[in-house]
């Protein structure tokens, strides 16, 4: 069984009704799959000056999940009220 998550393809083996194996489909990188350590890949950044949503050209906001009550105070709610 194949799952499609965009360009990532995942192969899933099912035995009876249970998933018994999950593997990433072949990575098409010109045949060269490189495994690199996270220290080479991750780029630590110094804390940037916090940005104000009003001055940024954005259409939505992603943050930790809030409850209905929390929505009113959320940046996403403010963005809507600002009519951006």
């Amino acid at each position: 069984m194949d799952y499609n998550f965009g360009i990532l393809s995942v192969k899933v083996q099912v035995t009876g009704t249970k998933i018994t194996n999950v593997s990433i489909g072949a990575i098409n990188d010109g045949g060269n799959f490189r495994s690199v350590s996270i220290d080479q890949q991750a780029i630590p950044l110094l804390e940037q000056e916090a940005m104000q949503a009003q001055s940024a050209n954005i259409q939505s906001i992603s943050g930790a999940s809030y409850t209905s009550a929390g929505f009113i105070q959320s940046l996403q709610s403010a963005l809507t009220q600002l009519g951006l």
């Binding site: 940005m51 949503a53 940024a56 259409q59 906001i61 992603s62 943050g63």
Partner: peptide, 22 residues
């Protein structure tokens, strides 16, 4: 679409902005 990411230390501001792939 450009999506702002909330700054966890100051949730009334953004930490950065990403271009959404979906």
């Amino acid at each position: 679409f450009r999506v702002g990411i909330v700054n966890p230390a100051k949730p009334q501001t953004l930490a950065c902005i990403v271009q959404s792939p979906g």
